[in-house]
Amino acid sequence: MSVDYSLTIATDATAVQVAARGLPHQTEWMPGTGTALSVNLYETLGIDLSILSDRHGYVDAITDEGRFEWEPDPLVTVIFDLDGQIGHEQAAANMINIVRRLLDTGTEDMALVINGDLLLLARFGGKLVKHNRERWWRHYPGAEQVIFG
């Protein structure tokens, strides 16, 4: 069963610019429309990755404290599909490494959501907060080591 994660970034950057930040050594992307890129990294990282730039976004997810709603405009969404040959824990750690690079190379507000309903991570106004620690983070110690706190 595939598990999908989406990282929404409040930015007017292009999909290509975000791709260069998150995967600086990835040179081959499947052709897109200019606002969309994708690459299959199942064999090396255990993920399939799509990056989409858009306007008028909407994020709705569950946190430990209740519902989270956010409407970024403009935005780039990075979609991770974890369903490859690599074990799910390693694939999750690889995904979190990409998220970490995106956090480290910009100051934008961001939100990471699993399967469209659980908020895992959010940064607003420079403050990074993990959510759903018991439901997700404690099950992925490799991811926990990449993003502390």
Rank of each mutant, 00 (worst) to 15 (best):
V78G: 04
G57M: 06
M110R: 07
L37A: 02
A15N: 08
G22S: 05
W70C: 06
L128D: 03
V39I: 14
L23C: 11
A13C: 07
T63K: 13
E134F: 06
G84A: 03
E71I: 03
L128T: 14
I51T: 12
L49W: 12
Q90F: 03
R135P: 00
S53V: 03
R133M: 13
I51W: 00
S38C: 15
P31F: 04
M30E: 15
A92T: 14
E65N: 11
G34M: 12
T14D: 11
T77H: 03
G106L: 02
R123D: 07
P31R: 05
A91I: 01
V59P: 00
M95I: 07
N40W: 08
I47W: 10
V113T: 06
L37Q: 13
D54L: 11
M95V: 01
A122W: 01
G126T: 01
N94S: 13
G87I: 04
T14V: 11
T11E: 08
V99P: 03
G106K: 00
S38R: 13
L75F: 15
V18R: 03
L102H: 01
G66T: 07
G34Q: 11
L75C: 14
T35S: 13
G34W: 15
T11M: 11
P24D: 11
Y58F: 13
V129Y: 08
V16F: 09
G46S: 06
V129D: 10
Q26V: 07
A20S: 14
E89F: 01
G126F: 10
L128Y: 09
N94D: 01
G116K: 02
A19W: 09
L49C: 07
T105L: 09
N94G: 08
I62N: 04
L82H: 04
G125P: 00
G34H: 15
G32T: 07
